[in-house]
Write a protein that binds this DNA or RNA. Sequence first.
DNA 1: CTTGCTCCTCTAGTCGCTAGAGGAATTAGG
DNA 2: CCTAATTCCTCTAGCGACTAGAGGAGCAAG
Lengths: 151, 151
Amino acid sequence: MTIGAFTIGEAARVSGVKVPTIRYYESIGLLPSPPRTEGGRRAYGDADLSRLAFIRHARELGFEIEAIRALLQLQDEPAQSCAAADAIARHRLEEVERRIASLTALKVELERMVEGCSHGRVDRCRVIETLADHSRCGHDHGGNESAVPRN
Amino acid sequence: MTIGAFTIGEAARVSGVKVPTIRYYESIGLLPSPPRTEGGRRAYGDADLSRLAFIRHARELGFEIEAIRALLQLQDEPAQSCAAADAIARHRLEEVERRIASLTALKVELERMVEGCSHGRVDRCRVIETLADHSRCGHDHGGNESAVPRN
DNA sequence: CTTGCTCCTCTAGTCGCTAGAGGAATTAGG
DNA sequence: CCTAATTCCTCTAGCGACTAGAGGAGCAAG
């Protein structure tokens, strides 16, 4: 089934994943170690390219490496139930929704800050004032979640 | 002007910033090194607590440490123009807007994925299929930006 | 005077890469 | 056939903004 034989550079060009990132994925066991040429270079087959494309797409959608690992494992066992994959995707969707809500709240507050700026001296700057005195803003964001999630 | 004298634990409770994080802020020069008690413990004053509150609020709004450093410096020199603070805040606002747009696009695609899931076997799972075959989705997100920004 | 809490410093780990050093192999051109 | 450019190899270290844990010292209450 493995027809083509691609160098890592070709794999990078085709998949859009950078060369060091491909090696990184191999190092963490996300991508299998491909066979090597006589000179010691990685030789990828079509299946590897598909896997790389899968990974890339999943990363673009913000799935974490561990989630992608789980999804790849599900893909490798096609007789299993869809439920696990569904749950992973739903979980990611909920994260995205929460993140959008949180960022929208931030946006409102930031807009209030910059709109209120009188462009005068710093000692009357709305931006600085708002940051210094939390009570001057719609103080909902200071809940108990950590401040700045990664995605 | 420095009236109260707070331990690092009290400062953490009042500001909502964790103890190790306060020490971290000191180590990177964001928070000045406070005087110590005889026993070698940090003794914070009111000004330090205000500064911590400022930092916390700015972090909640997603400002990077370097941006906060700049904003604090502006606060310390009240005669300066407001323009710099305004620019920093506007820049952050633009980032947030871009991020919301990008996440909204992700949300649409994730919704399509989970809605199309027939809850059957993995070999007909829409989630896995979509990830494997990029052309099956509204393939706009694979532009040239890096996949998952930090905030 | 002991118990338990807070505090101290220091190092290392998190995540998902990215950058760079130093060297070997391949490919294109002369 | 030789050289130069390109690609590849491994390895270590760095990014941002913390977080976790080791190992030890101070301090307040009973």
